[in-house]
């Protein structure tokens, strides 16, 4: 009994120490910029940019294989932030600013196949096999991953309706645009 306990403990501690040493000598330095860019991305790994995930998209940005405007869910705000971080000047006026869209399940067409449930990166779709699916609205990031897989085309991307809860005063025009008036 004692031998068993002791030998396993010694073995575990030795292997752990060896692995710890190996981790120190074989550590890989990741670029800190990549971590920062990945943090700025939406983080849902939806794949709309054509990269396999947000970390890969950050890599492509650093390597210069992708534009800062690559992220549809991030929109113009993210593109501006990324450009600032990377020190690039980009004309963002071409990038259309659409209002936030979220998924909506047309219940008369939903057959309860659960395919969209498996696609959703934020688990915003709920439902079960052969029963109606629906969207938990605050969780939906509008990445459109579910739209393609639906066999009956029952998911539409609709603008978030304005209610008293989410309406806000429009922001004042930014300095750049109002500069002319002041001068």
């Amino acid at each position: 009994m004692t031998e068993a306990l002791l030998s396993l403990t010694v073995l575990g501690v030795t292997l752990g120490a060896l692995l710890g040493l190996a981790a120190r000598y074989l550590s890989v330095k990741e670029s800190p910029l990549k971590a920062e860019l990945t943090d700025m991305m939406p983080g849902t790994n939806c794949g709309q940019c054509g990269q396999p995930g947000c970390a890969a998209a950050a890599d492509a940005l650093i390597g210069g294989q992708a534009e800062v405007t690559l992220c549809p869910p991030g929109g113009r705000a993210l593109a501006a932030e990324l450009a600032k971080k990377l020190g690039i000047v980009v004309d963002l006026s071409a990038m259309e600013e659409h209002e936030p869209l979220i998924a909506f399940v047309n219940e008369d067409r939903c057959i309860g196949c659960t395919r969209c449930l498996r696609e959703c990166p934020t688990d915003a779709l709920v439902g079960g096999p052969k029963s109606m699916h629906t969207v938990i609205r605050p969780l939906c990031t509008g990445c459109e991953a579910c739209v393609e897989v639906c066999p009956t085309d029952c998911i539409d991307m609709l603008p978030v309706e304005k209610t008293l809860r989410n309406w806000y005063w429009p922001k004042p025009a930014s300095n750049q645009q109002s500069g002319n008036i002041a001068a």
Binding site: A4, L8, G12, L15, L18, L26, V28
Partner: peptide, 28 residues
Amino acid sequence: LGIEYLRILTFIMVIAAVVQFTEMVVRK
């Protein structure tokens, strides 16, 4: 030590450590 009955447990532990090590080497 006469503790052959711990063979599978010990081997799995060793194998897991070796795999972790390999992963580090490949990553590097």
